[in-house]
Design a protein around this nucleic acid. Structure first.
Lengths: 338, 338
DNA sequence: TTGTAAGCGTTATCAA
DNA sequence: TTGATAACGCTTACAA
């Protein structure tokens, strides 16, 4: 009995035999080496086509010591991560851009209980680089990781050492300041904020922007309640704010999901937006667009942020240089909520 | 000059030397072979710890012909995919479950222009199996793929050959019927549907469920407009419906995103829900919960669906058997919209 | 420009 | 239970 001809995928060796060249030449063709004669090139290409040859990834990695794959590390709190349109679209940008390259994307959930495992995996040559999204003050270990492999953060890392890290971000302070400014311009004078978590730079920066706007107008900045960027967090914070100050007439919610939670509370308490109170927020996603009323908000180029993260990472992997911080533009979109 | 001791990751060989055993023994320890004496085991473990050894993935794959990685294939239309909470949560389930195993998850975007490339990659031993999400009538090629490697679909595949495919799904017909029934019970008699795409089984099945409910009540089933499961699609469909039949008093939208688009149109045309008309939908996500009014809807266990997809796939990979179709339970959640 | 041959770091077979 | 030793499929000096 002859061996089953399609028992396994064709190998480079089979291509070489079919094309009448050596394995090296086939390898050169696969890797776009210029040092191949047109005839050899044609013969190899033909053989590859006919056999339906696809290089074995593991063998390539092992021999070349390049994995052609990068990791996307997401926080353990997957539910909140995937529920947030912001992250969904950043991931979209990453996946889309990467699909145009020869790199493979591995999704990695960073277990806090065993973060060691994740880091070991990343450090042990299993990926060429890593993208870190939505990590909190515990991002030190990932900043450390950058000493072993190229790492790019989405959003400025919190830790001190992070000042040397590569990251993509927007000017959260300025964007928050400028959208809060809208409230002031409409004559609101008792303005609160539903701030993000204090262990995330986006949370801190947006809070600071809100403060700057109020300070400049001589308005007190005492009305601060924190949420976790989720609708439920927004609801709870809104309740606390109304309890503290029933007369408040303006709110800046640091994320659209929190704003939508806040809207529910306002509705149930009979506070009309924008009649009784103005509401502005951050992110121009589904929540900001489809709420009633639609919300005045800060738009940031999320898909593009993902693209740029990949872009910077691939540059680093190629040994090129990239600027450590990439700031993406934002703009305020005015809608009915203020 | 001696070679840089930390120029590269420790290898199995170094562990073997440190532990005073052969490479084979180290390999056995790594792979939990029972045939290792306690002393050898201890020595190897100690060496592994001290060196911080992590097995080289590529080498393992190459030698064992098992990749320990599975692909998640998502459709080319990434924007719509990632914008849909349904898929986001299914992916969440997949990623979470997989992170408890030794498998790695690769995100693959199926390019329609070069679907060949994707399939080649999958067929060429680069993954142990594949998860296919949200594919349309063009899913034939993936059904074919199942002849080469284990494949599990999220949602029943459309193609004929798909009847032999492994998939996880819910009873869309029955769920749609039963939520439409709510409209009828409340006395609605002119009931429309914003159906999903005709090239997706969820679209077809929910439409059929709506028809069953109406047929049973002797209500005409002429008011059908299709959308693409997105808010914009829902808006457009709602407009067409109102133009066709201003007197309609009930709507079943086949997805919560379409329902929320529909709500915007209704609001702008002065139609109050549920005062003038009842609106029920599918999916208990953010859109259904945070709209005003919150929507009566069909809840399906999305995270769990992702889990089960992985579960079935891993069974298949292990050579075990699994039932081709896994149906997950749904239930109707009643809210204010009807 | 092409081919030869030596790895890359594991697993797997077979004897011992 | 352990240890040699031969793969696994490719890349990459180096030689021709």
């Amino acid at each position: 009995m002859s061996p089953d001809p399609q028992s396994s995928a064709p190998t480079l060796e089979m291509v070489a035999a079919a094309a009448g060249v050596s394995r090296s030449t086939v390898s050169r063709v696969i890797n776009d080496s210029p040092k191949v004669t047109p005839e050899a090139l044609a013969a190899v290409r033909k053989a590859i086509d006919e056999l339906g040859y696809v290089p074995n990834r593991a063998a390539r990695i092992l021999a070349s010591r390049r994995t052609q794959s990068i990791a996307l590390v997401i926080p353990e709190n997957t539910a909140k991560f995937f529920a947030d349109p912001y992250f969904a679209t950043v991931v979209q940008g990453i996946a889309m851009y990467l699909s145009d390259t020869d790199y493979t994307l591995s999704l990695l959930i960073a277990s806090e209980s065993d973060g060691e495992k994740t880091r070991r995996y990343l450090q042990s040559g299993n990926v060429d680089g890593a993208l870190i999204l939505s990590h909190h003050s515990d991002d030190r270990s990932y900043v450390q990781l950058a000493k072993s492999i190229p790492v790019v953060f989405g959003g400025r890392p919190m830790s001190q050492e992070g000042s040397h890290a590569y990251y993509i971000d927007v000017d959260n302070v300025e964007a928050a300041r400028s959208v809060t400014q809208k409230l002031i311009e409409r004559g609101r004078r008792r303005i609160a904020t539903i701030a993000g978590p204090s262990d995330m730079s986006a949370g801190l920066d947006r809070l600071q922007g809100w403060r700057q706007a109020l300070d400049a107008a001589g308005i007190p900045t005492d009305l601060v309640e924190h949420g976790d960027f989720s609708p439920a967090g927004g609801e709870a914070a809104m309740r606390r704010l109304l309890d503290r100050e029933p007369e408040l007439d303006g709110v800046f919610a640091a994320s659209s999901l929190m704003a939508s939670g806040a809207l529910n509370v306002l509705r149930s308490r009979g506070k009309a937006v924008p009649h009784h109170l103005g509401l502005v927020t951050f992110d121009n996603d589904y929540a900001a667009q489809s709420s009633s009323p639609p919300l005045t908000t800060v738009e940031q180029p999320t898909v593009e942020q993902g693209r740029r993260m990949v872009d910077v990472l691939l540059h680093l992997i190629d040994g090129g240089n990239a600027s450590t911080v990439t700031m993406m533009p934002t703009r305020v979109i005015e809608r009915g909520s203020e």
